[in-house]
Amino acid sequence: MTLPTTHDGAHEHAVWLRAFHDTSEQGRTLVCFPHAGGTAGQYFPLSAALASDVRVLAVQYPGRQDRCAEPAFEDVALLADEIARLLVEPEPASSPVLFGHSLGALVAFETAARLEHRYGVAPAGLIVSGMQAPYRRAALRLPGDSEEAALEALLKLGGTDPAITGHPELRAMILPALRSDFRAAAAYQPGSCPSLLSCPITAWTGRDDELTHGDVHAWAEHTTAAFHTRDFAGGHFYLDGFPPLIVEAVRTAVTRTSGSIAQARTRTDI
């Protein structure tokens, strides 16, 4: 599968990278990657809360909402190829911090690897949430290729209103992209790009999620810089709606990157 590309400068950026609020040009840029079935708009509350000092760009994957006419992706590597290219064209901006939740953590990680190793633009930091480190992931079983199985899998994780099952129009909008996202997650294999980064990595999880301590801490092996980890009350979608505690955690993680990147490897659980 190949993703459609228009190479139409500003229009292409606007299609893929959504900016919801005006921010200072001097602020750090935070690029946000949605979970399976997710949309850029889920980062609107975070953008609003950080608008005074952080420029938030949220990725809108193809195949959903205003991009529903485009085929959804089923290859994490191809998706990361496209996003990394957009972040350096027409010329690289200041090094962004990348933030991804669940499937978005894998897309953010692969994008970070391409920025550093393919384009020579190391991100300022990487925040990964709700996902095992790439080489800790066991082979995933698809929840089934039916709409019902995909929706059941999403509802089991929480963070989705069960009332959607009774709305055919909403189901029709969400489920095609969700099924493609699940296939992308199941097919994902690290190694399409060198995976050792020189930027700090911050890894988060919900305390009631199924991730283990080892799943989260293994992200430390993907950086030569600082590593931080933290858990929060809640399940897989502990950050849903971005309550103040999560907003401040994001702000802190972004602020850590505003100076020089740590040269010594440090490990903190905060």
Rank of each mutant, 00 (worst) to 15 (best):
L86M: 13
T255K: 11
P96N: 08
E116L: 08
D209E: 13
E152Y: 00
V88A: 12
A108V: 03
V250H: 03
H217P: 00
H11Q: 12
L196N: 07
S146M: 07
Q263S: 14
V56H: 09
H7G: 13
T266M: 08
C68Y: 08
V76A: 01
F232A: 09
A253N: 01
Q60E: 15
T257E: 06
G38Y: 02
D8I: 02
V128L: 03
A14T: 02
E12K: 05
F232T: 07
L155D: 10
A253T: 04
S95A: 15
A218C: 11
T268A: 13
L106A: 07
T223S: 15
P45H: 05
V54T: 15
H101S: 14
V216A: 01
A185Y: 01
F20G: 03
P244L: 08
G104Q: 00
L245C: 13
A163P: 05
L211H: 09
T266D: 07
W204G: 02
M173F: 10
S192M: 09
A51I: 01
V15I: 12
L155T: 07
G130D: 09
G27C: 09
T224A: 13
L151C: 12
I164S: 05
E74Y: 00
I83D: 10
D22C: 05
A58Q: 12
T202Y: 05
T5G: 12
L196C: 09
D161F: 07
D181V: 12
G38A: 08
